[in-house]
Design a protein around this nucleic acid. Structure first.
Lengths: 154, 154
DNA sequence: GTAACTGCAAATCTTTTGCACCGAA
DNA sequence: TTCGGTGCAAAAGATTTGCAGTTAC
């Protein structure tokens, strides 16, 4: 019973945190936006619009184009990171300055998240050399996972 | 006059080198394929299918779908590197083990090639940790170039 | 001669957009 | 009340594909 009560409390707290995030970016608080932030917050890695949509659609009524528009808006505001992957789909993740990259198996699509990003140092070099302001980067590794390697003749 | 003669000789030599490349991959030698290899070899960085096509179409008669098919085939054989960029277009470059990444201005699309790739060391770590065979990676930096920075109010 | 290559047009897939309606502030 | 947000359907843009004709070997 105590545990049952704990859950709603946590959700409530998160909801108000997310309202603050939206308010700070001059965005109206809507069921749809909260639901999307909710799902991405719970996710362990980047998700496609389609994935977000298929989960969110179970909770609230939302069209796919709204999912795209919302994800786009949140990315423009810097709340999310947006990233076109080698599979042709765009992945979204919370921009919490602890972003992740992916290692994807080209045979079965198994995906592993890479926690540490080695590019900060390289960005500093680029800034010095080019005068660019660096606003982001995309990095993805492709390979063949151990399960699939088993099937390759040597 | 001597210089004028030098050029055809060089082209001849390159053509036969490219025939060897195709033969080694069990691909027939066609005007189209030679033209595409030619253009990518002369290019200083990765090119889109559209760019390759628009240049190649001046020299030989070729359809856009053939350009796509040829670039795809050459990539499958490992002759080219294929890379979906954050702008939604696929870029192709010679796979000469000296591949380049790009730094792209999100305002004017000015693009700078990055010659040294810092990822080899990271790939070794990933191999150890995940058991994947790493077959490739994509890396791209986005930013705002000095020309465009001038327009931003501080 | 035959399998591989090519051109054309149509299809595919993801993402974006126009427009009319709806809802948060 | 008023913009901004949303749904629907249609458009967009890059790439792929089916099929019939052509070419390298």
């Amino acid at each position: 019973m105590k545990i049952a009560l704990l859950q709603p409390f946590t959700i409530e707290r998160n909801v108000s945190m997310r309202e603050d995030i939206l308010k700070a970016s001059d965005l109206k608080t809507t069921k749809n936006r909260l639901a999307i932030l909710n799902i991405l917050d719970a996710s362990s890695g980047p998700m496609t619009a389609e994935e977000v949509y298929s989960i969110v659609a179970k909770e609230v009524q939302m069209s796919l184009s709204t999912a795209y528009r919302t994800l786009g808006t949140l990315s423009d505001k810097g709340i999310l990171l947006k990233n076109l992957s080698q599979d042709g789909k765009t992945y979204y993740q919370f921009n919490n300055h602890q972003h992740k990259h992916q290692l994807v198996c080209t045979m079965c699509s198994e995906t592993i998240s890479i926690d540490d990003c080695p590019l900060t140092c390289m960005e500093e070099t680029l800034i010095r050399r080019t005068g660019f302001i660096i606003t982001g980067h995309s990095l993805e590794f492709l390979g063949i996972c151990p399960k699939c390697t088993g099937g390759i003749k040597e």
